[in-house]
Design a protein around this nucleic acid. Structure first.
Lengths: 343, 343
DNA sequence: GATTGGCACTCGGACGGCGAGAGTGCCAGC
DNA sequence: GCTGGCACTCTCGCCGTCCGAGTGCCAATC
């Protein structure tokens, strides 16, 4: 019994099942694939595959359906990324290039991914701990109140209003502010978020005692911004695609939608991916540690400007998913959006 | 035949149907409500209500179900807001008061609303045309590049990087920058977004010809920010609640999810509400102009700091919805979040 | 004139039996 | 090791039946 052919049979089953969403039997398989053997042989192979836990029958005398393990084998060894047509590539590039700012890039990316794959798309905002502080700005906004603005290298901006107790403008005014600004930027600018955080913490001790309270207040606000900034955000699109999946899947839609609202969960999944470097990660069904997502698969990868991978993106859909094309789309979009961000 | 009793019957039908999600018959009504009359009388009343188009029978010999018109009458004349318990009020206040910034307020609000009503919650970012420019800031970020930051009274921040051609720091440096900053703020600060936009447009003509190109570039970036700022954003939560509705509703879930992703549509709906002042707006089923939402109802109202209503919030759910409690929750949350924003 | 009890009627949904068809497992032969 | 054949199993769809909820109507009653 040829091991090789058995795998070809598995591949054919996965392909057919993904396409028809119905259990596939030995006869149907022969009609759609030139396997060069008879139905009986295929049946023997299928029995063996079932023995190995790669496929399963919903009930006697229905066709077979791939198990999570079957999909896993398919993804690892039996499939190759479906190449993007040049038309698709142009469409991707064109769609992403119209973006005016970071929000727009993310927004367009997630929509693009959802419509390419017809799955739920997930895009993490590029703001990992790898980003660093570009600039700290202080703006007096009347009375003793100061607007503290933090700008990171990934282009994100956080701001806080701080009541510093004294009116810095009325007294020695702009000078104090300029000094303070210089001190803060000296401590934070160019450093990673974590480094900046610890540098800033030491700052109040090093300045003129008269300013100490002011600095303390400003630093506290900045710390707050830094934490917020490290707190990762993400954006979803295409949840409606879930409703178009097979009716079996729709019945368990509730938990999936709930899980998708748990951004923390999704961020964790994307996070581990981003760390692994530029490879495509695929999580299939029960490989997923979160209960609500165990009827789904997630295809994801990292993206970001330059060599630094700053965030992750991917798609979530039923385990019965067209992996080769989903993987290709995810990779292509990640590549393009990274290129856009490099500017 | 007492008109009054007929309406009591309608009210009972709506209440029962909302609770059980099954068509309600004359007998079931008698068991659950003390109407003081016999089943036959109720049947006569129901026939009349059906004649008036307020209820309908899915088929002969099933109970009756309210029509959109029936819900409308119920909402307008037969129900009163379910008062919030003081425990609920405390919970709302407590939950919202922990917020650290605007994003957090909106995030908490939408989650709160979703969990209170067990529906899909929709919250528009408070950034209508009524908001105005608080401050414009320029930050040199190396070479000929300048970071332009726009801060509005609603606390939102937009920023753009502009290449101004010349390196402002190396030449006459900070002075030019300070002048420019003053000019820009003179033109924009304190004005509404629309006013600021037109003031800024005239600015390049009024400055030193040598700076004209620089100003033009900066103003263009600011214009861009202003448009972006007027572009309204919104946030959703609780979409999983849709999956818990009756199975009849779940089958038409796709279009609803699609409609919910069309933020433009939701913004329009919320927008008309915000304009109408502080009243609660209820759109029931087909009263809704958008096809995807015609199996749903939307309860919404305006909110915002002070007397200015700057945005809308609300919930979307199946027409079979507990209107009194949804309306009460929406109103309560709007009130509290407005109070929070008043700071 | 409104209300009521009674009654015949209708229709949908549940139940059960039946047949068709798809698909399987196994076996003997090549 | 592959193949054709065959008996077997199980699901699904169909149909007829039955049951009950619920209605509409009518004559009697207050």
């Amino acid at each position: 019994m040829s091991e090789d052919r058995r795998l070809r049979v598995l591949r054919a089953i996965v392909q057919d099942y993904v396409e028809t969403s119905e259990p596939v039997g030995s006869k149907a398989l022969l009609e759609r694939h030139r396997l060069g053997v008879s139905a009986a042989t295929v049946r023997n192979d299928m029995a063996a595959l079932e023995e190995d836990g790669l496929i399963a029958a919903p009930h006697t005398s229905a066709g077979r359906v791939p198990t999570d393990a079957g999909y896993r084998l398919f993804v690892d060894r039996l499939s190759q990324l479906k190449p993007m047509t040049s038309a698709e590539q142009r469409a991707i590039a064109h769609f992403l290039e119209g973006a005016v700012d970071l929000d727009d890039v993310v927004d367009r990316t997630v929509r693009l991914l959802a419509s390419l794959t017809r799955q739920v798309a997930v895009v993490q905002y590029p703001s990992l701990s790898r980003s660093s502080v570009r600039h700290v700005e202080l703006v007096p906004i009347g009375g003793p109140r100061l607007l503290v603005v933090l700008i990171t290298t990934t282009g994100r901006v956080e701001q806080r209003v701080v009541d510093v107790g004294t009116d810095l403008l009325s007294a020695d005014g702009e000078d104090t502010l300029a000094t303070l600004r210089a001190e803060l930027n000296g401590a934070a600018a160019g450093r990673t978020l974590a480094d900046a955080s610890s540098e800033l913490a030491a700052l109040p001790e090093r300045v003129d005692p008269g300013l100490r309270e002011v600095v303390r207040a400003v630093v506290a606000a900045l710390e707050d911004c830094l934490v917020e900034e490290r707190e990762e955000r993400l954006v979803l699109a295409g949840t409606a695609n879930l409703a178009r999946a097979g009716s079996d899947f729709v019945s368990s839609l509730g938990p999936v939608l709930e899980a998708l609202e748990e951004h923390v969960v999704l961020l964790k999944l994307l996070g581990t991916v981003a760390e692994q470097g530029g490879t495509l990660a695929v999580r299939i069904g029960h490989e997923n540690p979160y209960a609500g997502l165990q009827s789904t698969s997630m295809v994801s990868t990292g993206y970001g400007a330059g060599t630094d991978l700053v965030a992750g993106l991917g798609v979530v859909g039923p385990t019965r998913m067209d992996y080769p094309s989903a993987m290709a789309s995810v990779r292509a979009v990640a590549t393009y959006v990274s290129r856009i961000l490099a500017d």
